[in-house]
Design a protein around this nucleic acid. Structure first.
Lengths: 151, 151
DNA sequence: TACAATTTAATTGTTGACAATTTAATTGTA
DNA sequence: TACAATTAAATTGTCAACAATTAAATTGTA
């Protein structure tokens, strides 16, 4: 029924969009990110800028490399994101004095203060993801399993 | 333990990257798409081009609107993707004679032939996603639940 | 110490994603 | 029929993602 050669409409099952795991994953990630937009607009943040801020709320100072490891992003993506956040006065960017290769990113007061206002965002998001607590935990577990084995 | 106000390191739990569902989703989708790259390179296809071809292998002719509904993409994304696929001679693009607003996308012979060669790709992918059959089914179910409730 | 190797960010170039707008064709209706 | 409203795709502009390369600082070692 699900072998490679079994065909309906002369396409192997494994080449059908809906039989793949990757496509729902891709579609779902886009749909969720999309939902963030109206929630983040009032704070003048994009989703990528938001997750960058999340790292900083947990860790006041961090360099680009370490930030990239947490977010799975490289400096090519992060440099412009960080410059944007700096221009919004949410973060500061300075070279480390010990090692000038490192760029240290820090929250500004304004950036730190944002944390208090923005807690409504994850609350609103979890509302519109219509899963039970158990389903959410299960999904989280499965996603992490893939992420760790992929790395 | 997981209330909004419960804090460790003075960040509410709900604002921690790893407590969110959206971030693992985003990270996982990127990791999987990334894995496609070396598999698709020999066919000179990007992931987006690949899923576009998948729709066409199932449905020989389709217009941009319908294609966009299947892939959750708009014409702003699809127009350049389709032009690229056309330049690679995998598809043809023609206006419908009945309604000139519609652009009809069709497989070329070369594009149709690609299907036979590319079946190894989903096979290789399913190998490197380290889930049991049951886990994969469960993940698929959960993702679809989110996608449908989000739309 | 000198200089090769490594490390860190930034830059460049390509592709993707999407909002907002534009253009052209078709449909609805006064 | 005339023309307003709608529809489909393309265009424009912005941000994101990532490979590959570059520039600068640091580290390792002959």
């Amino acid at each position: 029924m699900k072998s490679r050669d079994k065909k309906t409409n002369d396409v192997p099952d494994c080449l059908k969009l809906d039989n793949q795991l990757c496509f729902p994953l891709y579609a779902c990630a886009k749909a969720v990110t999309h939902r963030y937009r109206p929630l983040l607009d009032p704070f003048d943040l994009t989703y990528t800028q938001y997750i960058t801020m999340m790292v900083l709320w947990e860790k006041k100072a961090i360099n680009v490399k370490e930030l990239g490891e947490k977010l799975y992003l490289d400096s090519g993506t992060l440099t412009p994101v960080l410059k944007k956040l700096e221009s919004k006065h949410y973060i500061s960017r300075h070279r480390s004095e010990q090692d000038e290769r490192n760029l240290i990113v820090k929250l500004t007061e304004e950036g730190a203060a944002l944390k208090e206002k923005i807690v409504t965002v994850p609350e609103q998001m979890s509302c519109c993801i219509d899963l039970t607590r158990e389903e959410a935990v299960e999904l989280h577990k499965l996603l992490h399993k893939i992420i760790t084995t992929m790395k």
